Computed example of a mutant assay.
Amino acid sequence: MNQPVPSTAILEVVDVYAGYVKGLDILQGVNLKVYPGELIAIIGPNGAGKSTLVKTVFGLLTPHRGQIRFQGQAIAGLKSNEIVQRGMCYVPQIANVFPSLTVDENLEMGAYLCSSPLQPIKDGIFATFPVLANRRRQRAGTLSGGERQMLAMGRALMVQPSLLMLDEPSAALYPPVGDQCL
Rank of each mutant, 00 (worst) to 15 (best):
Ala18Pro: 08
Tyr20Val: 04
Tyr20Gln: 03
Val21His: 15
Lys22Ser: 14
Gly23Val: 06
Leu24Phe: 13
Leu24Trp: 09
Asp25Met: 11
Asp25Gln: 12
Ile26Asn: 07
Leu27Gly: 04
Gln28Asn: 15
Gln28Glu: 14
Gln28Cys: 10
Gly29Arg: 10
Gly29Ile: 10
Gly29Asp: 10
Val30Ile: 12
Val30Ser: 01
Val34Phe: 06
Val34His: 06
Tyr35Ser: 07
Pro36Ile: 03
Pro36Trp: 01
Gly37Asn: 08
Glu38His: 12
Glu38Tyr: 05
Leu39Phe: 14
Ile40His: 12
Ile43Ser: 00
Pro45Thr: 10
Pro45Gln: 12
Ala48Arg: 12
Gly49Cys: 09
Ser51Ala: 00
Leu53His: 02
Val54Gln: 10
Lys55Trp: 06
Lys55Ile: 06
Thr56Gln: 11
Phe58Val: 09
Phe58His: 06
Phe58Asn: 06
Leu60Gly: 07
Leu61Asn: 14
Thr62Val: 13
Thr62Ala: 11
Pro63Asp: 09
Pro63Ile: 03
Pro63Val: 05
Gly66Ile: 07
Gln67Met: 09
Gln67Lys: 13
Ile68Thr: 02
Ile68Tyr: 04
Arg69Leu: 09
Phe70Gln: 06
Gln71Ala: 02
Gly72Trp: 04
Gly72Pro: 06
Gln73Asn: 04
Gln73Arg: 10
Ala74Glu: 14
Ala74Asn: 09
Ile75Asp: 03
Gly77Ser: 03
Leu78His: 10
Lys79Ala: 06
Lys79Gly: 01
Asn81Leu: 00
Glu82Gly: 15
Gly87Pro: 04
Met88Ala: 12
Tyr90Pro: 07
Tyr90Lys: 05
Tyr90Arg: 05
Val91Trp: 01
Gln93Asp: 04
Ile94Arg: 04
Ile94Val: 01
Ala95Asn: 11
Asn96Asp: 11
Val97Arg: 01
Leu101Gln: 12
Leu101Met: 15
Leu101Cys: 07
Thr102Gly: 08
Val103Ala: 07
Asp104Ile: 05
Asp104Ser: 13
Leu107Phe: 03
Leu107Lys: 02
Leu107Trp: 02
Ala111Val: 02
Tyr112Phe: 14
Tyr112Val: 06
Leu113Met: 11
Cys114Val: 11
Cys114Ala: 13
Cys114Leu: 10
Ser115Glu: 14
Ser115Arg: 15
Leu118Tyr: 04
Leu118Gln: 05
Ile121Phe: 09
Gly124Ile: 00
Gly124Tyr: 00
Ile125Phe: 05
Ala127Asn: 08
Thr128Leu: 11
Pro130Met: 00
Leu132Ala: 05
Asn134Thr: 08
Arg135Gly: 02
Arg136Val: 08
Arg136Lys: 13
Arg137Ser: 14
Arg137Gly: 15
Arg137Gln: 15
Gln138Phe: 03
Ala140Thr: 11
Ala140Ser: 13
Gly141Thr: 12
Gly141Phe: 12
Leu143Lys: 08
Gly145Pro: 09
